[in-house]
């Protein structure tokens, strides 16, 4: 499967090392519309491909997508050197997204850590957009980052806080910080929500997800109502290369979003 070529329309720096690319298709055939939680394989010319979740609006003009990338390796560094007007390759969208239908008529808890907010932003756009907010009686975001300067989408977080409950926490605060300090599990365990009628979407470091799940279970949330987005090495995105195996699951095609009840056994095994 060869990549479609996209052009960078807009490049936004989120914080040092993290940036969001707004892309539009150059060819006649853009990729299929995506579901929130799915990912694309982004190709930096000659450097290689990397799996990056879709972080933009679901229904922008046809052929427009957004990706939020953190520079960690050779390919993300090559993507980071691209500027507005430059081109890159895109294959996708791949994988299973967030089960938005499950959340209808229930409270939704969105719990994100660091870059983990990226695949959840389309969920927030989806639910805050149009009249969908009325489908969800209560919508809360819990977002933790290491430092105030390492939060994604800061201007939007402020805008969202007028339409939904937004709880922010950082591990290391600075003098201007007035929200929570410490891990996100603290405000989560004190939060008000109807444990029997809620759905939780989690994305972040595995450790953060494990501890957040523990809090949710203690609060009485059913394992069937908790969904997590997993990260593993992905080379093909199509279930053929074998790299992303996690127990019996291929994270690229069976995930990245899994229902906790289906995978809790595997989540507890180290170095799987």
């Amino acid at each position: 499967m060869i990549p479609a070529i996209y052009r960078i329309d807009r490049r936004l720096i989120e914080h040092p090392g993290a940036f969001t690319l707004h892309l539009s298709a150059t060819g006649a055939l853009p990729l299929q519309p995506f579901e929130p939680g799915q990912f694309n394989m982004l190709y930096a010319f000659g450097a290689g491909e990397v799996a990056i979740s879709l972080s933009g609006r679901q229904r922008e003009t046809e052929g427009q997508i957004a990706h939020t990338i953190y520079t960690r390796g050779a390919v993300t560094a090559a993507l980071g050197r691209l500027r507005e007007g430059d081109q890159l390759g895109v294959r996708g969208p791949f994988g299973q997204g967030w089960p938005l239908g499950e959340a209808e008529g229930k409270e939704l808890l969105v719990i994100a850590g660091g870059l983990g907010l990226a695949p959840l932003r389309p969920v927030i756009y989806h639910l805050l957009g149009q009249a969908r907010a009325s489908l969800i009686p209560r919508f809360q975001l819990f977002y933790g980052a290491r430092r105030p300067g390492e939060m994604l989408y800061v201007p939007e977080l402020q805008a969202w806080s007028r339409q939904m409950d937004v709880t922010l926490s950082v591990d290391h605060a600075d003098s201007a910080w007035s929200d929570h300090v410490g891990v996100i599990t603290k405000p989560l365990s004190a939060a008000e929500f109807d444990a029997e009628n809620c759905v939780a979407f989690l994305c972040g470091p595995e450790l953060m997800m494990r501890f957040s799940i523990q809090v949710l279970l203690e609060r009485g949330v059913s394992p069937e109502s908790i969904y997590i987005s997993m990260e593993r090495n992905m080379k093909c995105g199509t279930g053929l290369c074998g790299h992303c195996q996690w127990g019996p699951n291929f994270v690229c095609k069976d995930g990245p979003v899994f229902r906790y009840a289906d995978v809790r056994h595997w989540l507890g095994i180290r170095s799987l």
Binding site: Y43, G46, G48, E49, K235, C236, C241, G242, H243
Partner: peptide, 13 residues
């Protein structure tokens, strides 16, 4: 069946 991919460029890029 596992596989991986290798990407490369010529010297001029």
């Amino acid at each position: 069946f596992c596989s991986t991919v290798e990407d490369s460029t010529d010297l001029e890029g």
